[in-house]
Write a protein that binds this DNA or RNA. Structure first.
Lengths: 328, 328
DNA sequence: CTGAAATATGTAACCCGTTACATACATTTC
DNA sequence: GAAATGTATGTAACGGGTTACATATTTCAG
């Protein structure tokens, strides 16, 4: 039994009016007499009519869809961001298009192209590689999230450098002497900034530096911690470039029988849920992840609707969540 | 500087051919002379032409987009599933539409409608509420993932009842006497099946039952564990309805100073990454999450292409990951 | 009472591709 | 050498909406 999907023409015929009138009723736009409106509404109901968004998009050159490019949805930092964006946009009648770029410029551009081909109304991007040129011939409003990639593109971020300094200072204030850092990938701006913050604080205080690369991953960070602690037994604190790596560092300590926070303190960065699943719970610099997603979505929607916002680069404050891996 | 997006007509004019010829070149379909093809390709390059997918969809009634409805992307079980689906579909030129339903039938139907309006080619759904009728007038291939919701809808799942029994039996075999269960929400089929498995095993072995509801959440499961252990101090094992709750149970034990696995053993269900982030690492029944997503995507693509698959209800095997919260 | 403004509805062009069909020439077949 | 087949390209209808413009009727101010 093939079900037929009604078109506006059929509705018009059924209601004995023209397609223009049906369109006016659907969009509540232009003059329509009360009775006519009722007739049309009845026809719509009778034929179970739903306007076809593809046809609509073709004419209007907009789709009521927004795109969302993240490096990798399995990274626990992103689902909340995605969720926030969706919550905001759905409320305004938009649907969301999700794409995983693997931090790969080619994929990002491929997706951007696909989006353009589909008259996507706007895009939220988390990227390190994108620049103005890539977006210039796109003609679509864009908001950068989590990472600024060009000053001309509005963004929602935190001050990674400043907040990372705060994390390190928290360890210093807690009396730590030998503070190590497990850094994230070289090619990710935020991880560079966080590392630089660590280095600058150590430099300023004339302290030794112990840095090992943890690739933003738990397992790798665990190994990095083993290495670090093996070479420098007197390390008494670790600042990791993100929370995932803090979990790895904590695991390493647990395996080595090092008491956290008594013998060694740990502070992470991001504020993902993982920090609360482990014992002891991890002290971290928490980004207002959901709020940031919401803000980015709101900014994007404003731009789509032509209400340019004054503020182009929103920098959110973070919260130092003092938990169980640091003394306070 | 307003950038103009070239249409097929402009390409045709530039190359001095008709739109039909351009279309033939783009789609590599029908006869085109070598020289003409080159001319057209040059025109495409010169005008930076990209075919408009909206117009194409309108005519072909298909969009090269597939939809994906999950209860909540922030539940750590889903990102991997989503990722797997995307990996498969993108390789075939499809893009993914992500929707969070909050396990709410109305939202699910709303999204399904949106998808139909956009000529989405197929949908993968994780749902408890959907039934045949909801999908009947949709005319879109559907594959159910993680949960079967109707026998007429192809599905990719595991045997929740059998595997949950296996989990409980693992505790029994490890010598546990008083086994408790922290259950998931009543309205989720899988959580009911897992609970029933626990009850049936206990019944068969004539053991006492201790059940507390944990809502699939860490915090709630932690409280449920406190309650359970407060009332029954001799409980020596807990089977939780999912891994998130296993983490909650473990936290409760840690806080109460109960040694895991020596005084109390814990086994979870699902195989999410959380089980490896905590110490001790949690023993669990691991679903091949990524593989399941991949399979579901492949099945869907086959259906979209008209290659009905013989097998309609794929049931994947699981793996009992023996880790540190049970003795073996 | 007349002309302007507001209300109500229809016709047809348009958005941008795809493809059925028509046309024309080249090649093959018997 | 005529008919059949293959190659190459163009014309125009079509998909399902939106909207500019035309037309007709009603309302209202002066």
């Amino acid at each position: 039994m093939m079900i037929h999907i009604a078109t506006i023409k059929e509705v018009a015929k059924y209601a004995n009016v023209s397609v223009a009138t049906v369109s006016r009723v659907i969009n509540k736009k232009g003059y329509v007499q009360k009775e006519t409106q009722t007739k049309v509404e009845e026809a719509i109901k009778a034929l179970n009519y739903r306007p076809n968004n593809v046809a609509r998009s073709l004419f209007k050159k907009q789709s009521k869809m927004i795109g969302y490019i993240v490096p990798d949805i399995t990274n626990p930092f992103f689902p909340q961001l995605v969720r926030a964006v969706e919550d905001v946009t759905v409320a305004q009648g938009y649907t969301t298009f999700l794409c995983n770029s693997d931090d790969n410029l080619e994929k990002e551009l491929m997706y951007l192209n696909k989006m353009a081909e589909n008259y996507i109304d706007g895009v939220i991007i988390v990227s390190n590689h994108m620049n103005e040129n890539h977006l210039a011939n796109l003609q679509i409003p864009v908001v950068a999230l989590d990472r600024v990639f060009h000053e001309s593109i509005p963004s929602v971020t935190i001050d990674n450098y400043r907040e990372a300094k705060r994390a390190v200072m928290h360890l210093v204030e807690n009396g730590c002497e030998k503070i190590a850092h497990i850094s994230g990938p070289e090619n990710i701006i935020n991880s560079q900034l966080r590392k630089k913050a660590y280095q600058d604080v150590m430099m300023a205080l004339d302290r030794p530096m112990y840095i090992s690369e943890g690739h933003y991953q738990m397992k790798t960070a665990q190994e990095a911690t083993f290495r670090l602690l093996h070479e420098h037994k007197d390390i008494d604190a670790i600042f990791t470039g993100n929370d995932v790596m803090a979990v790895g560092a904590l695991k390493a300590c647990t395996k080595l029988g090092i008491k956290v926070p008594n013998e060694l303190q740990i502070i992470g960065f991001d504020g993902i849920e993982w920090t609360e699943t482990v014992s002891p719970e991890i002290t971290t610099i928490a980004q207002p992840i959901y709020e940031m997603g919401k803000k980015a979505a709101t900014m994007l929607l404003n731009r789509i609707n032509g209400n340019e916002e004054g503020q182009d680069h929103i920098v959110f404050p973070t919260e130092l969540k003092m938990r169980e891996t640091t003394k306070h």
